[in-house]
Design a protein around this nucleic acid. Structure first.
Length: 177
DNA sequence: CGTTAAGCTTGAA
DNA sequence: TTCAAGCTTAACG
């Protein structure tokens, strides 16, 4: 399904070191389609290739001219240190209706604020879908830009974070105040 | 408090 | 289409 969804799509990407390890930013001509963290560049690229199976990849590091992509990359890198000032970049998100609804709802959480999985579930009109909301968060392709790190457990726990719970903790820490 | 079951979506079989 | 599993939670012992 996803393989067909991205087949033939041109995806430009770049991996850069950052305060959270390595960050990968990928985008199509329509907008950013992935922002992920990990310790190793290789695993980030592998994850990208798996998610966008069938796409045609191009390492932005090979580009010679200043592009719109570079601006997006810069915006993301800046947001890592200043998660309260996440830039509004064009996004190219593809997922199920449910996922897109959840991701949209997440973008409604103000910087510095947090919401529980059940609160998001309620907000989208599915009060009992807390766990499904968590699954949608886990499927969020763009860290930061869709602030899934602002979603925590009802009982005060941090919940999980696809790219490492430590990074979630750090991001929330940086947003506080 | 540790367990358990209800609840909803998703990806794989 | 069936099924197990997940960034949950409310209920129970």
């Amino acid at each position: 399904m996803a393989s067909l969804r991205w087949r033939g799509q041109a995806v430009q990407y770049a991996v850069r070191p950052c305060s959270l390890g390595q960050v990968l930013v990928a985008a199509t001509g329509a907008g950013v389609c992935m922002v992920a963290f990990d310790d190793a560049e290789a695993s980030l690229v592998a994850a990208m290739r798996a998610r966008f199976a069938g796409a045609v990849f191009a390492d932005a590091g090979d580009a010679t001219e200043i592009s719109r992509f570079d601006a997006w990359l810069t915006g993301v890198r800046h947001a890592i240190l200043h998660p309260r000032q996440v830039p509004t970049l064009p996004l190219d998100l593809r997922g199920t209706d449910f996922q897109r609804t959840v991701w949209q709802a997440l973008r409604g959480i103000a910087p510095g604020r947090i919401a529980s999985y059940s609160a998001i579930a309620a907000r989208i009109g599915r009060p009992r879908a807390a766990r499904a909301v968590a699954a949608a968060c886990a499927g969020n392709p763009v860290a930061l830009l869709v602030p899934c790190h602002r979603v925590v457990r009802e009982d005060g726990g941090l919940g999980g974070f696809r790219w490492g719970i430590d990074r979630k903790r750090i991001l929330l820490e940086r947003e506080r105040t």
